[in-house]
């Protein structure tokens, strides 16, 4: 399948510091690509390079076969972009603002805008300056989707949205994928990317340290689990269970880390009286740790 987004040796230096180093990336049509990484890893730099807001120090970026640095306006025509820190003219209402941007795109179907606003429960008649952070973010999402672009580039799109709206947003992304559109979104929240992405790339210190399917990534993820037993923890059994690491006892409680699936652990616990089980979501840092542990 043809790559919709392709970068080769894409590098961005800011003065002395490195934003992104030698990135080779291919995102195929109809894919949701989740770009994960802690703050400062280079996610925003990558996304801003892809829409031509930044110019590469080396290498190149192509969207739909168009060199971004060479013909940014043609790329802009085909892309919906949501910046990481979306800001809009505070004196305009949502409706005025979206009409202005739509006009710059040669006109946008008003029905599409209305439908998007309705799905996100966004009141377009209010001044943007009077909106809450979450509602402003919704304006940003609407402007990215409203012209039905074949490519969507979204930087931390769910920032400021309440859980209900986050779910609605993920539905929007799934709908776009169903229409064979290509979406690249960045996040520092694994569960969000997990919920919607087909492929995940992890950036760290300006380098893409891994690109993998969500399934493979989850299989490698570390999960911290606290177990409380009705008796002494069966430490020998736990230690012998595949995938269990960093095991330690604390009275009737056992703390451990599981790599990948927890199925073996749950099976091993069946004969015992487990009074409480707390599982901490694998956070990014833990996935990185897993990744580096494997490398090491």
């Amino acid at each position: 399948m043809a790559a919709v987004i392709r970068t080769s040796g894409l590098t961005k230096n800011y003065g002395g510091t490195v934003g992104l180093t030698g990135l080779d990336l291919e995102v195929t049509a109809g894919t949701v690509f989740g770009c994960l990484g802690p703050n400062g890893a280079g996610k925003t730099t990558l996304l801003r390079l892809l829409v031509g807001l930044l110019h590469p120090s080396q290498g190149r970026a192509e969207v739909l076969g168009i060199d971004v640095a060479h013909d940014p306006d043609e790329v802009h025509r085909r892309v919906g972009y949501l910046p990481g820190d979306f800001r809009a003219y505070p004196d305009l209402t949502g409706e005025e603002y979206l009409r202005f941007l739509g006009d710059l795109r040669g006109g946008v179907d008003a029905a599409t805008v209305e439908e998007l606003a309705e799905r996100l429960k966004l009141d377009l008649s209010r001044r943007i300056g009077a909106l809450s952070h979450g509602n402003r973010q919704k304006v940003g999402i609407v402007q990215a989707f409203m012209h039905d672009p074949p490519v969507l580039i979204l930087d931390e799109p769910t920032s400021g949205l309440d859980p209900l709206m986050q779910r609605e947003f993920l539905e929007l992304v799934r709908g776009a994928r169903a229409d064979d559109r290509t979406i690249l979104l960045s996040s520092h929240i694994l569960t969000e990317v997990e919920a919607v992405a087909d492929v995940v790339g992890i950036l760290r210190q300006g380098r893409m340290v891994t690109v993998d399917s969500v399934e493979d990534l989850k299989a490698r993820a570390l999960r911290r689990i606290d177990l409380t037993f009705g008796h002494e923890p069966p430490m020998a059994v736990l230690a012998a269970t595949p995938g269990v690491r960093e095991l330690r006892a604390d009275g009737r409680r056992a703390h451990l880390v599981v790599v990948g699936s927890t199925a073996d652990l749950v099976a091993a616990l069946a004969p015992y009286r487990v009074e409480d089980l707390v599982s901490h979501d694998a956070d990014l840092e833990e996935i990185f740790l897993a990744h580096y542990a494997e490398e090491g």
Binding site: D73, E74, H76, R87, A88, L101, R105
Partner: peptide, 14 residues
């Protein structure tokens, strides 16, 4: 600097 130009620049307008 207010951050409002970013989205305007990412339109077909040069």
């Amino acid at each position: 600097q207010d951050g409002v130009l970013e989205v305007v620049v990412v339109t077909p307008l040069s």
